[in-house]
Design a protein around this nucleic acid. Structure first.
Lengths: 206, 206, 206, 206
DNA sequence: GATTAATCGAGACGGTACGTCAAGTCTTGAT
DNA sequence: ATCAAGACTTGACGTACCGTCTCGATTAATC
């Protein structure tokens, strides 16, 4: 797995600290330029050369850090993810509502929405990238949801037969479907309706 | 709407039957070659030149019909959609189960699954293409689902407050989410679990 | 030689006058459009499709008459050549002066000048065309010059050792050189200077 | 004038020695492949892709240096021009004879003859190219002739009213005329006959 | 008068080359 | 080993023009 990760490439295998050290400021400048460009033109029309131009940096400086355009973009996205706090509203319903709302926000208010389509295409052709994206972005999100759902079960609010991954997919899936496929806007009451749906089935009688 | 459609470009606006007509056989040969290549190499690695070579056709013959690679591919996908039959199992539960199973089949057994990621990326960058795909593929599918759900309401199996589009998204969304984002295989009991979920909320008491 | 000629193609080999006869008016319309377009855009940028459009004629109607663009153009040029009259000024000097002046006029006042460069290129690659051009345009011109020079010899104005072809080349060559290669304008006194040059060498002492 | 020149395109206007320098070896490899191909197939049938293939170079590497095929070809021709030595035979007659012979050699023994027709066509359609060709190839040649003729005047071998450009055209023009237009071979005694002609008129009595 | 065959305009067809673009790697000289 | 700059290969893109072929609709000469 570690070889699949995309976290900044390190210099060749000899030692780690010979020669001129990388300018750490460049990482941020590059990622910033990437986010900006991404939200302007989307993934497909983003070119590495243009990122370099805007960052005032050379192309090799970028490729020294990320093996491909897609990995640069994933990393840029990661910096946009707020260290997702598990919500603590006191009830499973409230927590799920909060998480769903957070996800809607991320998909519609951040560049993530513009980026996702292009990334989806690359992921289908590049397993390494897919792995990076899933490890760095999807998995942490899933874990948050799982923790929340399991807390609900533990507290006796959700039935013990609750299928954690299924619930997660049931709440998040339609959002991605609208974003990527139908292009329809997300209904303003989506979060409520969807959480209601889940609770109608999995709310513990006790 | 008509200007957004991509169905084969037609000759200039004078009349419609002047000059040598397009060879309709070529349409089929080209679309067939496209489907074949698509299922072999996926969207991103499909090249128009290779489609031409396999179809025994010139590149201009292709570009005469479709303005871009992406539109050719959409059209090819359309030919793969079987005039979706509304299922008639006699119960809303059975019908929804059948539709969900059909969709799973289309996404996993046909080239659609291989093609979708690339198409999603292009759609995000090309509104005309997005419109075409939605009009030709998504909307007919949605209509089928809507008809089925509404039939359930009419027969008194589903409550009258059933949100048709929400239900549709709830059943189909997670499938696309798995296919495009998480890459996880679809659980073998997905159809049952998902339909159960919906019925737990929308089954009519009567 | 006859098979190298480009004079209008005739219908297939059976008989000569079955079926609908060609519209003879079209020949003229096409040649006219060719001349016009030629003088506007030159040879290389002239397309057969545009000639057809302007002539209100179809492409096959053109290719039925001329096998290639280049032959159409040659034929169009021929129609521009005035049945060159041998001048009759009474003296060899006067006749040569007149011929040279005529040639200057043809090269600078008619589309010939715009056409020649492109034709030269095609001729180098297409012997059939070269033959047509030389037979239909160059040879008649050469004959005129030869007759004139020989008349001068006969009348005793030019020495009997006059090399007819050499003289012809000496007078005409520099004109083509300027037109095709150097691009320099032809000196206004070229005709006089050149004829003087020739007479200085070949004027008969007698 | 400088903006009309085609000599290898240079990088953007900042400085001149930043970034990876062009591999000068490639210039030579490309020009060499161009010359070879040119003498095999002539101008019209030379394709940039084939030049690239033979030179073991990519197409963009070529287009980085020359904006169009025609400019590549001109540049290739320039490399074939031997830094023309002004002949020093001691007499104007001998010098002119030598120059004429040199020109005959260049037109018949080098690829120049095969290339010229195609180039002539492009020049007529592309003033920049025409300018380049004339500046780089024609003008240096003309200067050589002018110097020679003027030396003859200075030495008293040619009359002081000798029209330098006219003489030059009179000697060179017929050669191009034969090559490009009539297709007739150049007479073996052309050089002598032509120089005789000129001397008959311009030889100084003194 | 019916038949026959080549014509007509329109435009599709195969072929071939064009010139462009972006991705990712390599090279230079300098720090 | 880094940096900026930009050359480099690779591979595909979409376009243009050539000369041919096909369609349905005339148009004459022949039968």
């Amino acid at each position: 797995m570690s070889e699949n990760m995309l976290a900044p490439r390190r210099p060749g295998g000899h030692g780690f600290d010979r020669g001129r050290p990388r300018d750490p400021a460049l990482d941020q400048v590059i990622l910033g330029a990437t986010i900006d460009l991404l939200s302007e033109v989307g993934y497909l029309r983003l070119t590495v050369a243009e990122v370099a131009r805007r960052a005032g940096v050379s192309k090799p400086a970028i490729y020294r850090r990320w093996a491909q355009k897609s990995q640069l973009v994933v990393e840029a996205m990661v910096t946009q993810m707020h260290a997702g706090q598990g919500p603590e509203t006191g009830s499973a319903a409230g927590d799920l509502l909060a998480l769903t709302g957070q996800l809607i926000g991320a998909l519609t208010m951040t560049p993530l929405g513009r980026v996702l389509p292009g990334l989806v295409a690359e992921m289908a052709a590049d397993p390494v990238l897919a792995n990076s994206y899933r490890t760095l972005i999807i998995r942490p999100m899933q874990q948050l949801w799982r923790d929340t759902i399991e807390a609900g079960v533990t507290r006796g609010e959700l039935t013990t037969d609750t299928d954690v991954d299924f619930v997660l997919n049931a709440l998040a899936g339609p959002l991605y479907f609208s974003l990527l496929i139908t292009g329809e806007p997300i209904a303003p009451d989506y979060a409520h309706t969807a959480v209601d749906l889940v609770l109608a089935r999995y709310r513990s009688a006790g």
